[in-house]
């Protein structure tokens, strides 16, 4: 354990906690920060798979999507109470992850990438065909999730801290998982599967459990995302979004969940910043990402750790 594993994220969390009081309190800034935190959560959960278990999933956006659509389904039935919405969103995603993971994890390498992509696309087309929930056009929520009937999350500041709380929890959870016996088996099997089998441990159930946990955290991020935008569309499940998440993880570095945290924040904020500079921002963003992959071997986390 090095200092940056804990100190770096602690600094980032402190900055996020103080940001609303240091000139980032307007609604536009808070919206952006909420988005960044939500994606950071999803990226951290994906990091458990990619960096921990060596499972490179190109379907992680589907996890966020299932969580977001759980909010939609309940919203349609006028159920907005958090104590119903959260378990439903997280539970539905965990089930989805269990069903798809049970099949996907039997494969490895490129096949795993392809099969997670295929499941993601399946979820995407399912969402597009849900006419009741707006199909391709998406669905606008009647209102944000309530806590004990109180519309707490309507308050942007309250929502900011709700997102921050979930983000810190996700980071702490993934960090603890990776250091536990469970995480040790995952990490070992990523490096040398045969050795792990020869020790008497079958990697499959550990990987599946990781897939379900990562899915559940991704689902929670999806619930928050639906609340942040008060709108859900199939684009949330698009494979490009899965690619973005994967990118955030690799950009940040695979040494620990703090990498994914930094990668996601940098990705969302730089993307936003470039978009304010020019409408051709994608022409800059793409090559920038390529340069990062080429020259930042340990990711952003590795860069900061060296300094």
């Amino acid at each position: 354990m090095t200092w940056r594993d804990a100190a770096l994220p602690a600094g980032v969390f402190a900055a996020l906690a103080l940001a609303p009081f240091l000139g980032f309190g307007q609604s536009h800034s808070l919206t952006l920060l909420a988005r960044a935190m939500i994606f950071a959560m999803a990226a951290i959960s994906l990091m458990l798979l990619v960096g921990g278990a060596g499972l490179v999933s190109l379907g992680h956006a589907a996890m966020m999507g299932v969580g977001a659509y759980a909010v939609v389904v309940l919203d349609h039935a006028r159920i907005t109470e958090a104590w119903a919405v959260l378990p439903a969103g997280v539970g539905a995603t965990a089930l989805f992850a269990l069903a798809t993971g049970a099949i996907a994890i039997r494969t490895s390498g490129v096949h795993f990438i392809m099969i997670t992509l295929a499941f993601g696309q399946m979820a995407f087309f399912t969402a597009s065909s849900l006419a009741l929930f707006g199909g391709d056009d998406g669905y606008t929520l009647y209102g944000r999730t309530e806590i004990f009937g109180a519309r707490l999350l309507e308050d942007r500041l309250a929502f900011h801290f709700a997102c921050l709380f979930c983000l810190v929890a996700a980071w702490a959870l993934v960090r603890a998982l990776l250091a536990s016996r469970f995480g040790r088996v995952l990490r070992a099997a990523r490096e040398n599967e045969t050795r792990v089998r020869a020790l008497g441990l079958e990697p499959y159930p550990y990987r599946l459990a990781a897939y379900v946990i990562a899915g559940a955290i991704g689902g929670l991020a999806g619930v928050l995302l639906a609340n942040a935008t008060e709108f859900v569309a199939p684009a949330y499940l698009a494979w490009q979004r899965s690619g973005d998440l994967l990118f955030m993880v690799i950009l940040g570095g695979l040494a620990g969940p703090h990498g994914a945290l930094l990668g996601a924040l940098a990705f969302v904020l730089v993307e936003e910043w470039l978009a304010t500079l020019t409408e051709h921002w994608r022409l800059i963003f793409g090559p920038l990402l390529i340069l990062c992959v080429l020259f930042l071997r340990g990711g952003i986390a590795g860069l900061l750790g060296r300094g």
């Binding site: 603890a176 998982l177 536990s180 016996r181 469970f182 441990l201 159930p205 550990y206 459990a209």
Partner: peptide
């Protein structure tokens, strides 16, 4: 069991 999730191994 190796299904222990929280204690640092």
């Amino acid at each position: 069991s190796s299904f222990r999730f929280f204690r640092p191994a």
